[in-house]
Amino acid sequence: MHMKSAPHLLAEDRPEYERILDDALRHAHERPDLAAVGERLNAVQLRTMALDATALITETAATEYDHYVKAREELRGPAEGADHESGPGSGGSPNQSGAGIGAVVTVLAPVLAGTAAFIFLLSGYLLRLLSPPPSFAATMVAAGWFFAAVMAAAILAAAVGLLITALRNGSTSQPAEDSDNELPEDVARAREAWRHALLERGILPFLRDALADPDAGPASRTPHRSANRIPKIGYSRPDFSSPDDGPAAGPRPTFTSPDFTSPDFGGPEHEPD
């Protein structure tokens, strides 16, 4: 007899399973079939039992979960491919190249203009100290002030660019976070179908069986009956036995020790002559 193994619940879906379970226990008083919560087993004990039986419960919604995982992976596939295509080996788009050149110019322009202004102004004013001053001293001073103005304009342009970038990133960051939480319609439907099947066919029947089974309970209550901690959900586990064992084992034969006597010492009929 073969039994379908329970699906492995991915780590990213474990919190969702726990949220559905907690929500069911939180609203247990609204369901007549769970009205016994708190009488023999409280919500904490039921939660512990349900977490121990995660594989058994999630198996009831295996089909829906498999469909949800496949739909989610198909959604993530194109996005991951686009990330790889835009990696270092892809060369980048023209917009990205233009943005990189603009950033380099924005950083280097104030530095180069400031260096040129310092050199021309220093040289021009030193030449003015000579007597008589050279005719090109005034030209160097004028060139120095020109590069100083270029440096100031470059710094102002860089500051405006940084401000615009900060405003753009601030205005687009929140919608990007919201779009991560909004799933496409097909993935959202698959996720909702899994949630519904998990609740209706797995969690709720498990809680009902746990409340109805007098032997079910956490290990702290019945440590010597650990096999009864998890109630059955509509089916029982198969029994496995060795193929060599027959339908019923018969009684084992018994052996008695034989009596040993010496041939020379028999009964009265064997007296010596």
Rank of each mutant, 00 (worst) to 15 (best):
K4I: 10
K4F: 11
K4D: 11
S5P: 13
S5Q: 11
A6S: 04
H8Y: 05
H8S: 09
H8P: 04
L10K: 12
D13S: 09
D13Q: 10
D13Y: 01
R14M: 05
R14Y: 12
P15R: 08
P15T: 02
E16S: 07
E16H: 10
E16L: 15
E16T: 11
Y17P: 13
R19E: 10
R19T: 05
I20R: 11
I20Y: 05
L21R: 14
L21V: 08
D22I: 07
D23F: 11
D23V: 11
A24T: 12
L25Q: 06
R26A: 14
R26V: 05
H27C: 11
A28Q: 02
H29Q: 13
H29N: 07
E30Y: 08
R31Q: 14
P32I: 12
D33G: 08
L34G: 01
L34N: 00
A35H: 03
A36Y: 03
G38L: 09
E39F: 06
R40E: 00
R40Q: 02
N42R: 01
N42H: 03
V44D: 09
V44K: 13
Q45R: 08
L46T: 01
M49K: 03
A50R: 01
A50T: 10
L51F: 05
A53Q: 13
A53L: 12
A55G: 07
A55C: 01
A55F: 04
L56V: 14
L56R: 14
I57P: 00
I57G: 00
T58I: 12
E59N: 15
E59A: 13
E59S: 12
E59T: 08
A61S: 12
A61H: 07
A62I: 03
T63R: 10
T63I: 15
E64W: 03
E64S: 09
E64T: 03
Y65D: 04
H67S: 15
H67F: 14
H67L: 14
H67M: 08
H67K: 12
Y68T: 01
V69R: 06
V69S: 06
V69A: 03
K70R: 12
K70S: 13
A71I: 00
E74C: 05
E74G: 10
E74K: 13
R76G: 12
R76M: 06
R76A: 15
R76P: 04
G77I: 00
P78T: 08
A79F: 06
G81N: 14
G81V: 11
A82L: 13
A82V: 07
A82H: 06
A82K: 10
D83V: 15
D83C: 04
H84N: 09
H84Q: 14
E85C: 10
P88S: 09
P88G: 04
P88F: 13
G89C: 05
S90A: 10
G92N: 05
G92C: 03
S93W: 07
P94Q: 05
P94C: 00
P94E: 08
P94D: 14
N95L: 13
N95F: 11
N95S: 14
